[in-house]
Design a protein around this nucleic acid. Sequence first.
DNA 1: ATTAACTGATACTAACTTAGTATCAGAACA
DNA 2: TGTTCTGATACTAAGTTAGTATCAGTTAAT
Lengths: 145, 145
Amino acid sequence: MKVLTKHTDYAVRALISLGMKSGSWVSAKAVSEEQAIPYQFLRRILQELIKNGLVLSKEGAGGGVMLGKDPDTIRVKDVIEIFQGQVQVSECMFRKQLCSNRANCVLRHEIMRIEQLVNDEFSKVTVGKLISDLKRVQVLSEPKL
Amino acid sequence: MKVLTKHTDYAVRALISLGMKSGSWVSAKAVSEEQAIPYQFLRRILQELIKNGLVLSKEGAGGGVMLGKDPDTIRVKDVIEIFQGQVQVSECMFRKQLCSNRANCVLRHEIMRIEQLVNDEFSKVTVGKLISDLKRVQVLSEPKL
DNA sequence: ATTAACTGATACTAACTTAGTATCAGAACA
DNA sequence: TGTTCTGATACTAAGTTAGTATCAGTTAAT
């Protein structure tokens, strides 16, 4: 059972990377090298983030990408939904039809509860929070001069 | 993002079904019909549950399958692990190597926290609990004579 | 004006997973 | 001795994941 696909993983890492250089255009190539993400794969991920308004882009030499929103408003949940769709139990939930039998229902009831929990947790984690965590870790691990 | 595969879904429903007829051999065909699970698919799922000791089997006419443990000791988490493997963030966690960079780590730290939460929740849900929930629902929905 | 550094759009691929189907052998009951 | 079962295993189609590759168009610097 895999929680995050590479798409989501790379996307969040790219967003963190951009969030730490806010205000300036950074090329996909630079992000790709910094985060060790395959270039062409990252390109497509960035295009998706751009399409969803999380990232801005500028074409041409000296162009690149930039965070399109306040890092504190970009939730990991949003990124997951872009690349992996909504957390779901099974297809029947979307068709909004009644479960075919009651055994289904009691199981689904539990799973929906857990699903809600996961959604709430992933909503609490924002790119801004990850960046401040990251800065804290960096300070702690810096050698004392 | 799909939480449960059909394997797990069908397996739990089959376990509930068996749990409600404890003490007697039930054929895979009967379970398949009752729960509307494709017969051959269910056969393979049951074999996996047998191999893992959750279900007992008896060959030949009059044979079938039966719960192999107290329903209260069969956790949905166990079933998920049989069919979908352990909840995991990414492969690197298993290789037990250090994350390649710190941005990875802060993200993974959050995800591991959420992962733990999910595991705890799925551990709390047992087949026994689902059966008693199911019985409660049935009583409530019975027409008053 | 040309070139180099960029993104936009899109097509393609290999490997893996998911959800099933099908078959044959052998055990037990009647 | 035939019918009803499980055991074991092989096969398949469709979808997903994780990439690669290509070409068109834009911008900035020379």
